[in-house]
Design a protein around this nucleic acid. Sequence first.
DNA 1: GCGATCAGTGTAAACGGTTACATACGCCGG
DNA 2: CCGGCGTATGTAACCGTTTACACTGATCGC
Lengths: 365, 365
Amino acid sequence: MTSKARRAVSEPSPGRASGVATIRDVAARAGVSVATVSRTLNGIGPVNDDTSKRVLAAVRALRYVPHAAARSLSIRRSHTLGVLLPEVHGEFFSEVIRGIDVAARARGYHILVSSSHADAQEMSSVLRALRGRVDGLIVMSPDVELGPLSRALAGDTPVVLLNSATTARATIRIDNYTGAHAMTDHLLDLGHEQIAFITGPERNADAAERRRGYRAALEARAKRLPIEIEGDFTEESGYRAVPRILASKPRPTAIFAANDSMAIGALRALREAAIVVPEGMTLAGFDDIPMARYLTPQLTTVGVDIAEMGRRAVEYLVSSLEQSDPAGRKHDVIPVTLVVRESCSAPSAPARVPNKATLRSRISS
Amino acid sequence: MTSKARRAVSEPSPGRASGVATIRDVAARAGVSVATVSRTLNGIGPVNDDTSKRVLAAVRALRYVPHAAARSLSIRRSHTLGVLLPEVHGEFFSEVIRGIDVAARARGYHILVSSSHADAQEMSSVLRALRGRVDGLIVMSPDVELGPLSRALAGDTPVVLLNSATTARATIRIDNYTGAHAMTDHLLDLGHEQIAFITGPERNADAAERRRGYRAALEARAKRLPIEIEGDFTEESGYRAVPRILASKPRPTAIFAANDSMAIGALRALREAAIVVPEGMTLAGFDDIPMARYLTPQLTTVGVDIAEMGRRAVEYLVSSLEQSDPAGRKHDVIPVTLVVRESCSAPSAPARVPNKATLRSRISS
DNA sequence: GCGATCAGTGTAAACGGTTACATACGCCGG
DNA sequence: CCGGCGTATGTAACCGTTTACACTGATCGC
């Protein structure tokens, strides 16, 4: 039994020699049991007023702070939410995190962030490493297929998916279809007949929905066929799309890019081609990233309340975590707004934007 | 002893009835002890080849994933880094996180992010809640005083401060002084004699250094007194600064804003006053946020490699964590670059930017 | 032929909390 | 006077890992 001496058994480190105080040190100092300390600190069960005071005094004296890992192990809850993001799209990203963070902290949760996951392989491995670390997950993976993801999820961890095309789990997504439809309608209303659309990446769920909205609007109102140029959500691809758009005949009078980054690229290309926006070409984007209103001309686009998406994700997760009520699969849709600025006008006519002010209209149900 | 029956003692849940497999389940299935499983999985100590195979097979069969909290408790290490950020400055924020995240994952660490801390009070409480959850901290708090912060830090947790004015801990900061000095020199070189400076918030460390650089450059080269207008890093404050600048006499021919956001605000105000940049007024910023190159005219500014700052923070933290060598207090400075674009020219002369291309020059040592 | 060394494994004590159950006491109604 | 109940507290099992130490054979040098 010599091994028992490895640590002076329960001896509450008299000289504060070792690192940090534990609940046992506090108990010893307050002259009570660890149970009482725990009860006092967590406000559970009846504790005498005097006792409680002594405990709290000991806590302060020892600068005691409970050890989160120990607590997690015991109560089987980490009060932490995992946030998995794909390759980051700049501004979008920080907004999502901010929304999630604020909502989470308000509910007493921390967030563990992991971004830039190239492939499903890497994502699974991160997912695995998260067991025992998080109580729930917020996963944004518009590109990645869900097969590997589902397999990596033990199944007992609640998950909410952001902008994913699936019904297998709870999802929260942007109303891409309605947004794209409304923007296309707006352009049609202005009198444009040839509206080119720069698409997003092939396998991206958001991109697919936006294209669907564009096509549906065209089909419903005009007899024109869609004019689609391939893009991949990068500014560069927007830039490259322009020559091909200008070459198509009849030449389009409006360009609708599936996201703002591509619209920015297109704007650059148009400027280099000495085409003035909106007089020579109308241009619209999607997302309303902060930069959109700083462009010259200010970009007409579809506005998305990104922080709201994060907020709702947390809300759903926490409530399904704290009530044993499973809350079922929820499929929440974030409404979008049409944000009309300077970059659109009637074909071959000057811009007609009231007072240069931004005009926002809610378009989702 | 009836209480012992609370759980069938060590019985490895035969029907997988309970939640998830533990190391004991794996051990039972492989016909070995938990120690052997642990050794196999961690590659520590000698394990027979056959045994190891059996263990791994059991792991796969049971879809066993080690429980992070239990592991943390035992090895007293969470392999997680805490990242505390102040009220978020949009783009800056996402870059820092990305830099940190990528570097951390490369070294096998996770990151726990907490942003938007209004006051020191709130920050301390978060700091406290992090004990047992993180092995080290990256804290960015240019405004907050370090008193409360230091007190909240138990002292045993390694910390690296980002952009803080202190020598009490390891710090990594941007070379604000040199950057501001170089930009002021640049404007002087162009021939400007009256250069107005829009300051940052009173108690912000970055802001103070930038002002110091501006003043030093003026003092060294010109006989002119500094012209300083108060700002607070928000776009709005940049906007409001312009009328006051235009009113001062002799009227300045150049504006140097202590960050890009304020420069953007100033640009808007100048446009509304029908003053063309750079012909009617030269304008410069600081940070080189992504938006800077999309403005019209593109903004001349001081470039900072933000992700690099995150990377170095992780590097320092991890190395001081893994070697018992404390590595001492390190004070690292991130070099900056002068990014010359369209928004600056000689007074009352057209812009003279070579080919409209961006010109970057490293200016820190 | 024998102690020393070493590979391979098991046992059980930590890690620092929570909490079911037991205990002790005071007070109540009958 | 006694069973019952509520309050306040202590004891120790448990959460799921890691790892110091003990143990068993086999191999080796001399």
